[in-house]
Design a protein around this nucleic acid. Structure first.
Lengths: 179, 179
DNA sequence: GGAATGTAATCAAAGCTTTGATTAACTTGA
DNA sequence: TCAAGTTAATCAAAGCTTTGATTACATTCC
């Protein structure tokens, strides 16, 4: 991935990682450039991917990526409490609460008080929500296939496994599960 | 990564990917489960990583991750126009504009009109900003090392290369460079 | 029973992000 | 010269996110 030019004036988005790693390693010698490069690349890859999926699939349909994630979880888990949607989607309960308001306003999700717990809210998709998510998920997956198409099936598997390994013992950090 | 339980009631954050892939492949047969699993895992990995870095390194110092990104670019590229900061950081110009206002208010960044172009703004770090970013970057990289420590150096390199390959021809999509 | 504790959801404030409009300044070319 | 077009930055509106209250309901245990 090294590029031929490294002068600030010539910097482009795609050459910035190389430049940043080289310069930073020089300024802060005790740093681990491999870790730095991995995290920078990982972050950029995901942001490009998410930006592309959101702008090519979700926004044209009037949805947001976070809204899609909530809808997706509700679709998969049937009538479900907001609390569990937050857990599975990796969002805070406040975020789910706000998103569900928008989705309810748009007629995609229905709220109902839980019969067993007066505090809890049960979430289900409306017919409109159910229809919309299947169509959207197809388009979403088609776009995903285009993205991962630059890797062989074996490379895709390797990449998924390495990512799995990366997060596997992330419980070392008391990290809340955000994703 | 398969888990023993797949019933909705038993679902946890870390078993959700398996459950989601299995259920969705069943509902929408023409879908590519490998692509779906890769994108889901990638997204989760990054969100956990970013959330952890932000909450363990940046927020305790009164910074945000986006603010850090802007500061980092300015640190590396010296006096630089806002336009280029947006390009290199992968943010919109409006986002950079808003972030720079916050960073200026906090005494980390200084704005000056460009001598060559009356429209442009030149950005530099204040002494305080320069000192702060070095200390913060050290802590940031230390945490990065802890994260990638679950992978061997060779695995780290492989992962970085595969991610590089993934985004390499992403210019196929007219994707704006977001990262 | 009833007080103390715990939990679900929501609200509030602050920050970041987006798109699209606006303002100001530079550049081009008749 | 000066009008037309382009570009840099900012503004405005809308949405999402966070943390830290607040409200309402449940549970525990004296």
């Amino acid at each position: 991935m090294p590029q031929e030019k490294s002068e600030p004036d010539q910097l482009q988005f795609w050459s910035f990682v190389d430049y940043a790693v080289a310069r930073t390693a020089q300024e802060i010698p005790e740093l681990d450039p491999l870790a730095m490069r991995l995290v920078l690349t990982l972050h950029r890859a995901v942001n490009m991917l998410v930006y592309d999926l959101e702008s090519s699939v979700h926004r044209p349909r009037g949805w947001s990526w976070p809204g899609f994630r909530v809808l997706f979880v509700i679709w998969l888990t049937g009538p479900v409490e907001a609390k569990q949607v937050a857990e599975l989607s990796g969002m805070s309960r406040a975020a789910v609460s706000a998103l569900v308001n928008t989705l309810e306003r748009d007629g995609l999700v229905a709220k109902a008080r839980s019969p067993h717990d007066g505090r809890a809210v049960n979430l289900t998709l409306t017919d409109q929500g159910r229809g919309a998510i299947v169509e959207t998920f197809r388009a979403h997956n088609t776009r995903e296939q285009e993205w991962v198409g630059s890797l062989s099936r074996e490379e895709q598997t390797t990449l998924t496994e390495l990512l799995g390994k990366l997060i596997a013992d992330s419980t070392r950090f008391d990290a809340r599960h955000r994703a």
